[in-house]
Write a protein that binds this DNA or RNA. Structure first.
Length: 202
DNA sequence: TATACGATCACCT
DNA sequence: GGTGATCGTATAC
């Protein structure tokens, strides 16, 4: 298995969002691997995309989006959930791919423990471990300490080549949770998922 | 300094 | 189907 290099990410964001499907997202904590297959992504592309955090220009928060590809962009939403993105395109062009869902592969018990908020509470069902952008960051122990992380180092968080998803099995549609965006951006089919996969978000 | 709100989720009816 | 949780960030005053 091979770690995805910067040249994988330094391409058209729609291409990266499509090709990230099937790749393996790997987290390492205290020498233990936690991983999953990416089954759902969304593209956020540049200053012209009113749903993209960079559309209002450079700020301290979105600064990493303007930088090198293959870095992470992690931010907090609704005061409780962390979103995990990977920077794409050339340096200076702000764009990223949001990881919306993965299918658990390694470290399922660790994911269970991170997802269970309190002891004395029933375990989260396998199907609900990582089928949403806030759920998967919780399951992988991803928080703002992993913001601006270079994923080409092969430490803490990175991607490995997984399986190739054929075009016939890829579905596209509008992105989720961006009602505030301009209409042409709301309807843009920049969400990608694996057809029929049970771990795609609801 | 103050205020409004979001690339969500869990729990309720 | 609806709603409350909860806080960093952006924007306005």
């Amino acid at each position: 298995m091979t770690i995805l290099k910067r040249d994988f990410f330094a391409r058209s964001t729609l291409t990266v969002a499509r090709e990230l499907l099937g790749q393996h997202l790997v987290r390492e904590i205290d020498g233990q691997r936690i991983s999953g297959k990416i089954v759902e992504t969304e593209a956020y592309i540049g200053l012209e995309d009113s749903a993209c955090h960079a559309s209002k220009g450079l700020t301290p928060r979105n600064e990493v989006m303007f930088g090198l590809a293959a870095y992470t962009y992690v931010y907090l939403i609704y005061g409780m959930y962390h979103m995990l993105n990977f920077i794409t395109e050339q340096e200076g062009f702000p764009a990223a791919v949001l990881i919306r869902a993965i299918e658990p592969l390694e470290g399922v018990e660790t994911m269970q423990s991170y997802r269970r908020r309190r002891a004395n509470r029933p375990a989260v069902k396998h199907i609900n471990l990582t089928n949403g952008p806030g759920k998967l960051t919780q399951a992988l122990g991803v928080n703002q300490r992993l913001n601006k992380w270079d994923t080409t180092t092969g430490q803490r968080l990175w991607l490995e080549t997984g399986e190739t998803i054929p075009d016939a099995t890829v579905v596209t549609g509008p992105r989720i949770g961006i009602d505030y965006a301009a209409s042409q951006d709301r309807i843009a089919p920049w969400r990608f998922w694996v057809k029929g996969n049970r771990f795609v978000s609801k």
